[in-house]
Amino acid sequence: MKRWIAILAVIAIAAVLPLLLSPTGYWIRVLTFTLLFAAMAQVWNIIGGLANQTSLGHAAFFGIGAYTSTILVLKFGISPWIGMFAGGFLGGIAALIIAVPTMRLQGHYFALATLAFGEVMRVIANVWTSLTGGPVGLSVPFVPPSIAAYSFKQLLPHAYIALIALIIVTVIFEAIRRSAMGYRLRAIKENPAAAEVIGIDTTKVKLQTAVISGVLMAMLGTLYAQVAVFFDPDTVFSAASISIRVALIAILGGVGTAIGPILGALFIIPVEELMNDLFSSGAAGLSQLIFGVILIAVILWRPRGFITVFDSLMARFSNKARS
């Protein structure tokens, strides 16, 4: 009961926060991207945290989603809301195609195979100029603002859409974690051979998680495209700024927990922005250097993620409440 009150309180604060920021301003853009990256890291967490398969290729699905909805609106005038589901469908198929041969791989081998898949998608988007516009990238057309056309003059609606998306994927994550599938995944994570012996179809379970993760990641790609308005193959299929970053956010926050990716994104995205704001006018690259040093320090301080800070705070709080 107490838990639910706490969760509702957090959602209420998150729902009010965008209203306090200037609707056309800078911080609301940062907030929107923070929420989006939290959602993306949560989706990564389904496969990276629950199935324990460290994917470094989630940009592939993400980019498929961004390109699908944007191409549909550019060429056929189809609303990005519908394009989002089309992108999710293609993202799921892509996840299936990549998962079938790579799911047998473990650890580093799986990570490398997925990394390569993301790069392959980037090259395809670069070369297939007639469809994707090639390296020049695509601009989401500005149509008269309306909810149906997913077009807004201000960033405020985008912030709320990102918040809702984050809540939805977090609920999906938590539902999977608590379901029978979650138990199967945990069994596979602990000991794959033992899981097989007790009758779990490990390949099937892993495939299911991969497809769910791929579908959701592609749908988030559409949301990102609608906020960023312009993107090119290097942006959405980027290993560094998408694939590795979402993994980093989840790992820094706490892999396999629902709160981890949210904590990670709340830290990484604003701090990165703040560093750029404070230091980028000085020596070239200084802001990224400082950001990197902060990341290293944080990981040394909390190797298991921010979630441990959160947990110890909670423990202290409940101890105090008891005494």
Partner: peptide, 23 residues
């Protein structure tokens, strides 16, 4: 002059522009 780093990511460049305009 307000100098800011666009890095090499278009989305970051857009965010930086938003910052310079509003802040």
């Amino acid at each position: 002059l307000i100098v800011a780093d666009a890095t090499s990511t278009p989305t970051t460049a857009g965010t930086v522009a938003q910052r310079l305009i509003t802040q």
